[in-house]
Structure formats: structure tokens, C-alpha cells
């Protein structure tokens, strides 16, 4: 479970996240929706302890991420597939991440096969396509077999096969009882993947509800645009 409580992030005079509170429960895919600049990525970064909140807190399984001794055994995240050393081989990338959290190195070999990169495991990351880098990022997120997973725009740049692979993966992880939190701009994709949505705009919570309740009167896209343009349902 992820708990975000009165989370606020200010950069000088700009408030990127404004007193945001919501809870992401286990056993379902929760979509995190909002326009560009709504504060989705900043919120995810604060959950992962990458950025310090100006106020409020974010807890994963009741604890702050920075306090976790082996965080990757609790939380797996893919925020930016380009946040890698391009000169390192794919398998070595997973091996150092595994080593940092005391995860058996064989797990890196298992996962590189599981995400379909077995044939590319010894290639340097700069030689991998965007889709392959996304898969490598997913493998890194799954290394510690975590209960909580966070993905920021996971289908960006993927071909249809990759999109379906991610969708099936997210659904499968939620069906296993894990907490899956996914940000996306793609309403059609969220409509197919998410069970629940948290919608933000200008750093503030606009709506937290189930997909079913949101789409009672129309498509997810219509409901989203109504909410984020301030007209309400």
C-alpha cells in the first residue's frame, strides 16, 4: 500500500504538488492521471525519496522509502528508462542493482530472460531500442520481487506488442495481490489496464475513484477531460 498524506512540493514560488492525499491499495492497478505538469512524476519521486517534500509525507507499507534497508525488496519502480549508463551491458545493469539490495545474482539472469531480453543480455544498453530499455527497466523493478510497483508512463515509445506486454504484466502483478501504481497520459490504455484512478491537476487531487464509477456516463477520456478542465462530471 502507498499512502500519500498532505504531500506538498514547492520549487521557489511554484507549487508542483499541493497538499495531495490519496491511498493506493494492493490487488489492483491504480492509474495516476493528469495533464503535463500536474505533479505526477514529482509525486512519484517523493514517494521514492528522490525529492524531499516541502510538507506532508509519503509512505510505502507504512514506512518512508528512505528508511527501507533493502528498498527494492519492497518497492520496484520504473520512472525513467533512460536513467542508465549506456556503456554498461544489460545483464550487468541488473547485476549491480541486485547487488545493492543483497538480491541473488541469479535473479538478474532469470529476469533478463523473463522480460524477453535473453538474446540481448550482453549488449551494451546504448545498442538497445527504446522498447528494450523499457523492458530492462521493468526487469530492474521486478528484481526484488516487491509487493509495491510504480511505473511512470511505462508504455511510452512501445510498439503494440510492447504495450500489450506491459498491460498483461501490470494486470498479472495486481492479480497476484501486489500494489501497482501507474501514471499515464493514455486514457485508452488506462481504461484497459486500471481498476482505480487518482486524477490530479495543477498539483491537487481532482478525483480518486474506480474506473467503473468514472465511466458510468461515458468514456474515461471524456470523464478525464471534464475533470481536468474544471467542468466536473
Amino acid at each position: 500500500m502507498i499512502e500519500v498524506r498532505n504531500l506538498t512540493k514547492r520549487y521557489g514560488g511554484t507549487t508542483a504538488v499541493d497538499d495531495l492525499s490519496f491511498t493506493v491499495h494492493s490487488g489492483r492497478v491504480t492509474g495516476f492521471l493528469g495533464p503535463n505538469g500536474a505533479g505526477k512524476s514529482t509525486t512519484m519521486r517523493m514517494v521514492l525519496g528522490l525529492d524531499r517534500p516541502s510538507a506532508g509525507e509519503a509512505l510505502v507499507g507504512g514506512r518512508r522509502y528512505r528508511e527501507l534497508t533493502h528498498p527494492l525488496r519492497h518497492v520496484g519502480a520504473l520512472l525513467d528508462p533512460s536513467a542508465v549508463h549506456l556503456g554498461r551491458r544489460a545483464l550487468d545493469h541488473l547485476r549491480w542493482i541486485a547487488a545493492s539490495n543483497g538480491i541473488d545474482r541469479r535473479r538478474a539472469v532469470e529476469l533478463v530472460e523473463q522480460v524477453g531480453l535473453g538474446g540481448a543480455r550482453d549488449k551494451r544498453i546504448r545498442a538497445l531500442s527504446l522498447g528494450m530499455r523499457q523492458r530492462l527497466g521493468v526487469a530492474a523493478a521486478l528484481l526484488g520481487d516487491p509487493q509495491v510497483l510504480m511505473f511512470d508512463e511505462p508504455v511510452n515509445g512501445l510498439d503494440p506488442e510492447g504495450v500489450r506486454w506491459i498491460r498483461d504484466l501490470l494486470r498479472g502483478l495486481a492479480d497476484e495481490g501486489r500494489t501497482v501504481f501507474v501514471s499515464s497520459h493514455l486514457m485508452s490504455e488506462m481504461a484497459l489496464t486500471a481498476d482505480h484512478v487518482v486524477i490530479v491537476a495543477r498539483g491537487r487531487l481532482v478525483k480518486e475513484t474506480s474506473i467503473g464509477a468514472l465511466t458510468e456516463k461515458g468514456s474515461l477520456e471524456d470523464a478525464y477531460l471534464d475533470l481536468t478542465t474544471g467542468r466536473g462530471l
Binding site: 528522490l50 549491480w96 545493492s100
Partner: peptide, 14 residues
């Protein structure tokens, strides 16, 4: 500097 901070600090947040 060789590794992006995002990845390094997600793996070792302490």
C-alpha cells in the same frame, strides 16, 4: 557521476 542519480538513489536511498 557515471550513473544517473535517479537509479542510484532508488537502489540505495540511504
Amino acid at each position: 557521476t557515471s550513473d544517473p542519480r535517479l537509479t542510484a538513489l532508488t537502489a540505495v536511498p540511504d
